[in-house]
């Protein structure tokens, strides 16, 4: 056994003063910081600075047509947003789309992962095929769906009773947005779950089989608990990602018929209503929502959160 150095034997005479770092350790530390510095600076510059600036903008009345008249108005933009039914409608749609699509993705993703894990042949082909939705540009896929469901051009619309235009009705449109989202992102979920499946030892499943567990019991009592970390990571990633949904809605409905997400609302306020103050307030609120979701995940599932076991 090659012993990693510091675990070596006599720890007893542990030194009181930790500042007595050897020259080598200090150099290593300095090099570490030096190598990370550019990345850290860039990341802070492109996120922390803009978000602080967004908070500043959100406290102003700022119409892009009259930038000279911008002035400080305190929290009144937030008041306007939070008392507007558009915000709550968009938030409701976003939460709905997030909840349904992530749930469907989890089930479908599990099915796909099991297919890839258990398939007796064609595993590679399936995996390659499944990567295509992941790799494809969202806008491209969205257009494909849009044309498919538009009467006259679409093969799928042709399957419906004539005269129906699903993308122009609230619930069908929401359903189609979820469909497009699920199609695009299930592969990612499936791949994360597949990697998790690989960590479930075959022998444990055999043991469960010998203990008399049926296929479903093995799945829910052995596989799923052992995969919990992988599942939680996949859920966290996908929930936060789904909450930011923009591309699919923009192409499929542009947010018409009350199908707009919070991101669409923010975009419209900025580029249609040209109201930078309100737009920034929405930006900040979305940021807070995402932070809240992430915080809830980390709080609820603590150690399973990615990065928790990091930094060995």
């Amino acid at each position: 056994m090659t012993q990693p150095a510091p675990t070596a034997p006599a720890r007893a005479p542990a030194p009181k003063d930790r500042r007595a770092l050897s020259e080598g350790a200090r150099q290593e530390r300095r090099l570490g910081w030096l190598l990370c510095a550019p990345a850290v600076i860039v990341m802070l510059a492109v996120t922390a600075y803009p978000i602080v600036y967004a908070v500043y903008l959100s406290l102003q009345r700022y119409d892009l047509r009259f930038p000279q008249q911008a002035h400080f108005v305190g929290f009144s933009n937030y008041g306007a947003v939070l008392s507007s039914e558009f915000w709550w409608q968009a938030l409701w749609v976003t939460v709905l789309i997030t909840a349904i699509s992530v749930t469907v993705e989890l089930v479908l993703g599990f099915a796909l992962a099991l297919v890839m894990h258990r398939a007796i042949f064609g595993r590679g082909t399936v995996r390659t095929a499944i990567l295509i939705p992941y790799g494809i540009v969202t806008v491209v896929a969205a257009y494909s769906w849009q044309y498919a469901w538009t009467p006259d051009t679409g093969y799928l619309a042709a399957l419906l009773p004539s005269g129906s235009a699903p993308l122009t009705e609230h619930w069908p449109a929401i359903g189609l947005i979820i469909l497009a989202e699920v199609w695009k992102t299930t592969p990612f979920m499936a791949l994360l779950l597949l990697a998790g499946l690989a960590l479930v030892p075959e022998e444990t499943l055999r043991a469960a089989q010998v203990d008399g567990a049926g296929a479903w019991q093995r799945f829910f009592l052995v596989t799923v608990p052992l995969m919990k970390p992988a599942i939680l990571v996949a859920l966290l990633f996908r929930t936060l990602d789904a909450f930011r949904i923009f591309d699919n809605i923009y192409i499929l409905t542009s947010g018409a018929h009350n199908t707009g997400s919070v991101s669409i609302l923010g975009y419209d306020n900025l580029f249609t209503a040209l109201n930078l103050g309100i737009g920034s307030a929405i930006s900040v609120l979305i940021f807070l929502c995402v932070a809240l979701i992430a915080f809830a995940f980390v709080k609820l599932f603590g150690a399973a959160a990615p990065g928790a076991q990091e930094g060995r």
């Binding site: 150095a5 510091p6 070596a8 034997p9 006599a10 720890r11 005479p13 542990a14 030194p15 930790r18 007595a20 770092l21 050897s22 080598g24 350790a25």
Partner: peptide, 9 residues
């Protein structure tokens, strides 16, 4: 002797 004072050899 390691930087933290532990003596390995």
């Amino acid at each position: 002797r390691y930087p933290d004072g532990a003596v390995a050899v």
